[in-house]
């Protein structure tokens, strides 16, 4: 598992789809990973990172409120695998007595992780097979 952070949100020029770029926190060279995500999840991530306040709670703010109300904490989120171009993730939630992983899309996991100040990890194989080094980044 490699810890990453959200570098930025961008638009894939070819498909017009939103992408999130994750960047390895430690290591040399630094790997990055690009994941295609939905518009509303991209907005949920960038709104929070840009510290923009929304007049009403967004869906992921509600999810954080639910997590808090259930007396649990988001321990970490993991991007676990890629199958047929679909990225899979898990949210690891912890209470006093148990730790449970819940299946999630990476976009939701990331939107929750940044709100809960939880680390984001990527599986080694995923980063190796789907990551890129900065100089390879053609997206600009």
């Amino acid at each position: 598992m490699v810890e990453v952070k959200v570098d930025y949100i961008s638009t894939d020029k070819n498909t017009g789809t939103q992408v999130v770029i994750l960047e390895q926190i430690c290591g040399d060279p630094i790997h990055r990973l690009m994941i295609w995500i939905g518009e509303s999840e991209a907005a949920a991530i960038s709104t929070f990172l840009d510290k923009k306040s929304t007049p009403r709670p967004m869906t992921h703010d509600l999810l954080k409120n639910i997590v808090d109300t259930l007396s649990t904490t988001v321990n970490a989120v993991h991007i676990t695998k890629v199958e047929e171009s679909t990225f899979y993730a898990k949210m690891s939630l912890k209470t006093d007595t148990q730790e449970i992983s819940i299946d999630s899309r990476p976009s939701d996991a990331i939107a929750v992780a940044i709100r809960c100040n939880a680390p984001i990890y990527v599986d080694d194989d995923v980063l190796e097979n789907h990551g890129f080094l900065e100089k390879e980044n053609q997206d600009g």
Partner: peptide, 19 residues
């Protein structure tokens, strides 16, 4: 949908912790 969408995740979290 092939993957849980955000509101499915909300429900899954609630169910998982007996809410």
């Amino acid at each position: 949908p092939p993957r849980p969408i955000t509101h499915d995740l909300l429900k899954n979290v609630i169910d998982t912790f007996s809410g």
